[in-house]
Design a protein around this nucleic acid. Structure first.
Lengths: 194, 194, 194, 194
DNA sequence: TATGAATGAGTCTTCATTCAT
DNA sequence: CATGAATGAAGACTCATTCAT
């Protein structure tokens, strides 16, 4: 790894949480220099512009979140278990295991849908990938005989996703862990009844 | 109504959709003058500052959304019918009947939770009011014998809310009406099975 | 007195102390409306512009100060007594009997000498009048045999004035009454030795 | 000396006289960019804000004045001579050797006493330092046998100061050198009679 | 005469970006 | 590759002034 790559990685790591907390418009280059301890020139030496950093930061946050889910899912053998993992992660820690600032897809979706097409596209792809991941698990479950074969996998997948994202939003807004726990209980019931 | 009140109302009406689309940080005073055709001085003559406009714009958007729900609910007699209304509104028009920019609670929640305490508080209250509205409908349904008396009304209410907000977010992000329709189908099933 | 004259007088009275405290550039029209309880339109109905108010306010402050000196001087019969009056006034109350904000001549001189020719001219005239008043007292004293006839009245008059203005400035700046008392003691000695 | 330090110094040098003539409130950032030929961004890159420039400009003007006095005093051997220096400086050039705009202590005292606490404090300290300098000279003179030992050094020091500041104010206001000459003649007499 | 809403040039300040070193 | 000084457009906000009512 070249020095440039190392610095680039360092900048992304350090700035990812700010973008995920303050949003793209709310994050200034001064924020970036403060949190990295680097100069503006250094950031512009490694990235084309603020957009470029934001995009990489989004990817980093997404990867962080995906790694969390992937590693937890790996511990489960059954497909239902893999689905239930999400309720456990979000319920136990009330979302605190997510990247700082919460779900990057949710954050980016809401801020950037009308203002930042590149980020919007990334978030959209991430969301659809997530949905497809659920579809994959459901199909595997059908194959394995865990689930009945006449499921509407698309509908179930997108419903789970909506519940999760809605729960994360409500949890951040209300600062009350009970809400996310109740929703996750509903999700658990939903998954168990599939 | 004084001229000041009229201008104030005019400014709020005109700017509400910008704040709901671009967010607080993403909306500039130039945006506000452009969309209203007024000068900065005029805006500052009617509002204390940008914050003040944003707060009123949020209230306006919220009221717009609440009026939509309230008027549709009034057409339904049964409590279940009142709950199902949301699936119809969001499904039929794919959210296009919402204020321009989407659900102001969702938008404000995501942008302002870490940056704008006043707006966050307003969004939080609006969300809890909405939840309590659901709880009220559920209790009325229990009273009327529509629903079984051993429901966890809090859980059901917050779950419906999470599904709705999640659906709105997904709909805006993916520009694909199928997703919200599927989620609303799940919500319909959920409500009908109560 | 017409209503216009009454309102004009009211505005001057109320605003004089702000101009004398914050200075011309530091006083805004909002300050003027706040302290008078009137509207901007009302102020512009009675004065041509901010300058006009400032000029009248200066004259008012000046008159206030002159009245204080004149009435005190009237109580003294001897010319030396009339001169000593100033030391008493400034020493006893440490300047608190002056118009709010201090000596308007001093304030206007320092702020407006390079920026506001009209006010500067007014302050200059007031200062020279004051000096001439001293000269007059000194001449009367010579006539009355109180003072020797070979006094340099111009020099004495302007020296007294410099001591007084210097004392007022030092008093305001240091918030320490001892300084003005010591200077007034020196002035008393100076006058008594004439 | 870094480039930043050089630019900072350049800005201070160039802007000091504006602040000393127009005052803090009367000096705008446009004034500062015009006189320096720099951009606003450049000024804000070197100073925290306008306040910061004003404070440094005051210090610079003060230093300029103090250097003038110090270098002239150094040429005198006797303590009386050191005191008389001030009459010479102010009398000969009628104040034209002072920083452009006049005595920064006087200017700042009058403008900032009610509006700018930081500048007021700086001016206050400068004035007391000056007074203490006079006290020091007087004590040295007593030690050296030049002056009688029963002097009220505080009173003499503050009286000299008041005369000087009063003279500077009168000179600027009246544009008539005779006045300052007469006052300085009185000061000379006063010092010689100590 | 008094009101108060509107103006637009002005205020101070921060922004993302560039470039010589 | 990194620095840090400079840019100038844009940011939010205040100003003195005007004018229809």
């Amino acid at each position: 790894m070249s020095k440039a790559d190392k610095t680039k990685g360092y900048i992304i790591e350090k700035t990812a949480s700010i973008f995920n907390t303050k949003g793209y418009a709310g994050t200034s280059l001064n924020d970036l220099t403060e949190v990295t301890g680097l100069t503006k020139g250094s950031i512009y030496g490694n990235f084309k512009n603020k957009d470029d950093v934001a995009v990489e930061a989004f990817k980093y946050n997404l990867q962080l979140m995906n790694q969390l889910f992937t590693s937890e899912k790996a511990k489960e053998e059954s497909c239902r278990g893999k689905l239930l993992i999400y309720t456990k992660i979000l319920c136990d820690s009330s979302g605190s295991k997510l990247p700082i600032g919460g779900c990057p897809i949710l954050n980016t979706a809401v801020e950037s849908d009308d203002t930042h097409p590149v980020l919007k596209e990334l978030a959209k792809k991430a969301l659809l990938n997530w949905k497809n991941d659920f579809v994959g698990i459901l199909n595997a479950g059908i194959q394995a005989g865990e689930f009945s074969s006449d499921l509407n996998t698309e509908q179930i997948a997108i419903t789970i996703l909506a519940l999760i994202e809605g729960a994360i939003m409500i949890n951040k807004l209300t600062d009350n862990n009970n809400h996310i726990r109740l929703i996750m209980q509903s999700l658990r019931d939903y998954i168990n009844q599939i």
